[in-house]
Design a protein around this nucleic acid. Structure first.
Lengths: 220, 220
DNA sequence: TAGATTGTTAATCGATTAACAATC
DNA sequence: TAGATTGTTAATCGATTAACAATC
């Protein structure tokens, strides 16, 4: 997979999501124009950093005026690839899986669950939050025939994580949001993001133990 | 809250948790000694970085030999403050809250839920995963009388996030793991870690859209 | 002692911020 | 035109990595 441009730091991409969020809020308030200083205040970053980050992707403002809110909002969404609906497929309809299916945050941001898989016969065939649960053995066939989703969401037990991830990869899935504590070995063709709540707890423990803040207020 | 030492980067603290995890695995395998090169391989980092990170906190190895696994494992736990049980209090026993209460990862790492609060009369009084759910109006009194937990876990609706966080702060809680999408305004006396799944999805979208990997394999 | 590996300093690399010319 | 603010370069800051003396 080719690297785009002279190398954009991933931290800059993460901040783009932050900017998009605040531009969306400004847009909803009917505000048409914003300066880098104003946006920086809202996001809690340096104004020069916003201008630098945006410059990685093009020119979006007007000197002397600032940035047009609705246009910049859409531009950033296009850059992030979030100016469309992405379909999610859940594997593992346990406690966490159920909570994710019902988590309204996802749909609000254009992430929609279109499939769910489990191996428990008690769960297979049921409807959770409007999504029919299929048997995990049907997964490969369903993905190949209908490609019902873009991103696999992994919420199975740790023991099954690698084998389910392998099956997702074999079926053609190229992105996985991994809620298990396992480090997945899938090679460079599959993008993996690990979500580990306990790392955050470790940071809170460190801060409390030492009276030294290593937390960050803004989401990463 | 005083800053310890000549300034330890938070990324170094995050890596300490990574080292602790792999040292624990080595210890379970009965391995007694490890070099910075071997540990670096396991963790996927540079060996000099491990030696540098450890040097922030003291001397743990023997030149010519390496590091004693069980001793270093315990030392890092002491540094992180995870050589003890931490008690968690959940606020908001919805889908996500329930999943967190039942999430076995927490207990395995020494994080134990000892209290849970909600305002739904259907839920108050029930037992979820061995934890009795109390009314949120009882929270302040319970914390002040019994201080049943150290860290508040916030899984309420966004609208309630700030007011519940304020109540936790008033009750004396000094650390919050925030699962809501709201940025909490609590001042410097409360440590806050935000958990936002959707940021991770944005990164996957960017990677898929551009064919340029901005994900990280190792959990943050 | 010779070989190995830490602890630490110095060199490198990359990201953030300041400054300012371009320009609306 | 004068004032404002971007886009971009240069300066600063901080983190990573290389190198090596200390030492087991």
């Amino acid at each position: 997979m080719n690297q785009k441009d002279p190398k954009i730091p991933k931290i800059a991409v993460i901040r783009m999501a932050l900017y998009a969020k605040h531009l969306g809020l400004l847009d909803n308030q009917g505000i048409r124009v914003v300066s880098s200083v104003e946006l920086a205040d809202l996001c809690g970053v340096n104004p020069a950093q916003i201008r630098k980050d945006l410059a990685y992707f093009g020119q979006f403002g007007t000197r002397g005026l600032g940035y047009p809110v609705p246009e910049l909002s859409l531009s950033i969404k296009k850059i992030l690839g979030t100016n469309r609906i992405w379909h999610l497929g859940l594997v593992g309809v346990g406690n966490l899986g159920r909570a994710l299916l019902r988590h309204s945050q996802f749909a609000e941001q254009g992430f929609v669950f279109t499939a769910a898989f489990d191996l428990d016969p008690q769960v297979v065939g049921t409807l959770v939050s409007g999504v029919k649960v299929s048997h995990v053995d049907q997964m490969k066939r369903m993905i190949r025939e209908r490609s019902p989703f873009d991103i696999g969401v992994l919420a199975v037990r740790p023991e099954e994580a690698q084998s389910v991830a392998d099956r997702l990869k074999d079926s053609g899935i190229r992105a996985i949001l991994n809620f298990t504590p396992m480090v997945l070995a899938l090679g460079p063709d599959v993008y993996v993001e690990n979500v580990d709540f306990t790392v955050r707890l470790h940071l809170l423990c460190y801060s409390m133990t030492h009276g030294s803040d290593v937390t960050q207020q803004h989401p990463r």
